[in-house]
Amino acid sequence: METVTNRAYAEMVKKASPPSNSARNIPLAFLIGGAICTLGHAFIKLYTSRGVPEETAFPAASVTLVFLSALFTGLNIYDKLAKYGGAGTLVPITGFANAITAPALEFKTEGYVMGLGAKMFIIAGPVIVYGISAGVAYGIIIYLFRLY
């Protein structure tokens, strides 16, 4: 008997491994992600109806969502929602808040400096690093070519 080659085995693995259930995951992501964004919009409406100027109401709504996400992460609810929401809970600003709050909670057993402080950005760190880097690169391009 000849043993299975790596390539042949990779084919076997592909066949034996069930794929993610996209027919269920994608609509759920749309619904839950959409609901989070609708909630954000409801906050904007609420704040503007109370006389908050629009340029303040927008960031205020984001801040509210970030707060709620962190709160629900602490209450062990956000991860359960994400189990169904998938990309719908990952993509909005609430996903970012969850990615910072979750390691902060998890690693506080290693202390407030090397645990909570250092590991807080273990998941969100790359987003910040490359987000800021892209912003700087974009700024330089605009400056050099005097697009504005």
Binding site: Y78, T101, E106
Partner: peptide, 13 residues
Amino acid sequence: RFPLEYGGQRTPT
């Protein structure tokens, strides 16, 4: 893997 409270989906495998 990830911290417990991190919201993510596990794959079927």
